[in-house]
Amino acid sequence: MKVRDILHRLQEADPDAVVVYLAPYADPTDAEEICDVVLEPDLWVCERHRSADGAASDVHHPATGGLSMGRDQNKDERWSERVVILTSAS
């Protein structure tokens, strides 16, 4: 998701509403309040890993960390991108 997508979706939101994060398949009582937004100044890397059945999963990490484990350079893609980090840690 891009920042522009979030801004578009939030156009009608109550500016006093609390922003929470709910992990996939989590119980609604496990929702955590977003406490901080970090505009990351450095580029990150996105690796798109492809399994044997063609399914894709993306792994994001700082560019300084090197490649992730299990990367298959014959099938997987990799590119640099800017990120914004939302965190529930204050």
Rank of each mutant, 00 (worst) to 15 (best):
V3C: 07
V3E: 11
R4G: 09
R4A: 14
D5G: 09
D5Q: 13
H8C: 08
H8L: 15
H8W: 10
L10M: 14
Q11H: 12
A13E: 05
D16G: 08
D16P: 00
D16S: 15
A17R: 10
V18Y: 07
V19D: 05
A23L: 04
A23C: 04
P24T: 07
Y25C: 01
A26H: 08
A26Y: 04
D27V: 02
P28D: 12
P28H: 00
T29M: 08
T29H: 08
T29W: 11
D30H: 09
D30V: 00
E33C: 04
I34T: 01
I34Q: 02
I34F: 03
C35Q: 15
D36V: 11
V37D: 05
V37K: 03
V37Q: 05
V38F: 14
V38Q: 06
E40Y: 03
E40H: 03
P41V: 07
D42H: 10
L43Q: 10
W44G: 00
V45S: 06
C46M: 13
E47N: 05
E47Y: 13
E47C: 02
R48I: 14
H49P: 00
R50I: 13
S51Y: 07
A52P: 00
A55W: 09
S57V: 14
D58W: 01
D58T: 04
D58P: 00
V59D: 09
H61G: 03
A63Q: 15
A63N: 12
G65L: 11
G66N: 07
G66K: 02
G66P: 02
G66L: 02
L67W: 10
S68M: 10
S68V: 06
S68T: 09
M69T: 13
R71I: 11
D72F: 04
N74G: 05
K75I: 03
K75D: 00
D76Y: 06
E77V: 04
R78A: 03
R78N: 01
S80G: 06
E81K: 00
E81P: 01
R82K: 03
V83P: 02
V84W: 06
I85T: 14
I85K: 06
L86W: 13
T87R: 02
T87H: 04
A89S: 12
